[in-house]
Amino acid sequence: MATLEIHDLHVSVEAENGPREILKGVDLTVKQGETHAIMGPNGSGKSTLAYSLAGHPKYTITGGTVTLDGEDVLEMSVDERARAGVFLAMQYPVEVPGVSVSNFLRTSATAIRGEAPKLRLWVKEVKEAMERLQMDPSFAERNVNEGFSGGEKKRHEILQLELLKPAIAILDETDSGLDVDALRTVSEGVNRVRETGQVGTLLITHYTRILRYIKPDQVHVFANGRIAESGGAELADKLEAEGYEAYTKGGATA
């Protein structure tokens, strides 16, 4: 069973006046089949955690470890992490002009699976996955994220999640900017993947709204670069009622 273990992770970014520490000792273990929600106010470091796990070059790891089934994730390049089973659904997916969605998906699936999927099966697989996410077939011929609406970008991210079947899925504010219908469609996609029991999910969100559709096993409150409190789904209800104020005003529980 795949397990992602984050231990005492410290991460800095280059700021104008030198490096600035964003993550200040994150400890978290995500096992296959589990869903962890990470909630926190803006600027608490949630997205930094997501991008650091995926290996974005902007972030410098200054301490701690991240392992996937004992393998050192931090030693891996970005593409190696993806092939090892770490998937990041991005908050702001990037436009790649000139590369069609269908070409991109097939190239990606080939890299992740280690061999090119058989064409006929692949076409069927993509078509069905797109139908489930209520995506028009013409979508496949468009350039990656170019001119996509906010909802289309997120559907496209979840389409990749469904096709690439990672061991660990990190969903970075997948709910932001979605209307209720799109949120439901996207959440259903995530749930289909979760229901296989094959994926450990790290759901990063600012709002509790998505947790009505995707039920977490654990909720972690992220504040000031670390996990300030962990609990069950009931913690989300508390945040819904009280907001993040208790965590942002100095001390918190840490």
């Binding site: 290996g55 992490r81 790649v96 002009p97 000139g98 590369v99 070409n103 990606s108 890299a111």
Partner: peptide, 27 residues
């Protein structure tokens, strides 16, 4: 770098990612 990161985050090695973009651009 962001385009490169996005493609690599989907398992595609850096050199192949660049080729994919150039090929698509000209195709």
């Amino acid at each position: 770098d962001e385009q490169l990161f996005y493609l690599m985050a989907r398992g595609i090695p850096a050199d192949e990612a660049r080729r994919l973009v150039v090929r698509g651009f000209f195709a």
